[in-house]
Amino acid sequence: GVSIALSPEELIARIMDAEPPEIFLMKDVKKPFTEANVMMSLTNLADKELVHMISWAKKIPGFVELSLFDQVHLLECCWLEVLMLGLMWRSVNHPGKLIFSPDLCLSRDEGSCVQGFVEIFDMLLAATSRFRELKLQREEYACLKAMILLNSNMCLSSSEGGEELQSRSKLLCLLDSVTDALVWAISKTGLSFQQRSTRLAHLLMLLSHIRHLSNKGMDHLHCMKMKKMVPLYDLLLEMLDAHIMHGS
């Protein structure tokens, strides 16, 4: 497979090339912020970002060689984690703020107008400040995001045929390659062997917080949908429904 043919350096270069462009909301959010217009802006933005995320995933070496079943399920499981890690990366140099897009930055107070959001907001800020303390590098960020995608789903399909088993072994192989790439990226920072192992552990430990945050965010969005606080349509609705369905 492609994953084995590429060196860690080449794989990182391909993963970096796959990075989505800056995405703008392109609509003025009315001030003062209200629950309805903040949620509307955030969901509009998420809908746009999701399309770019599918493009991104397709450019991760080896991803399109997985079965379509696996591609769909990986994306359905990880989409909010990927959005949240991107948000943390954009916000890493802006303490106390979340940079949803270049034209939508919210402080904690501004975010608190949405019921139930402040807890998630604080957790996002805390994880972002941890990345800031660790001085997360762009290459490390890109590897972590690819890892989230490839590690998002351990579920087996009900009818495991030859193609599915082959896809599962390709997936594990790809995950190994991305892990090697992350180790390589860390090794460039000039740390001692011991410090590199510690850094790898610190970065990977943050992924469990991101998964937890994504679950919280998913419940919150589901709740907003049920209360008809925000109309959801198209891709975002489909992705939310898929997640809720997998969860149940």
């Binding site: 399309v51 379509l68 198209d234 891709l235």
Partner: peptide
């Protein structure tokens, strides 16, 4: 793959060889 799966937007964007960004 079930019929329901085949109707997913995600499914369509993944299968099509054009860029999802262009399709959307």
């Amino acid at each position: 793959t079930s019929l329901k799966e085949k109707h997913k937007i995600l499914h369509r964007l993944l299968q099509n060889s054009s860029s999802p960004v262009d399709l959307a």
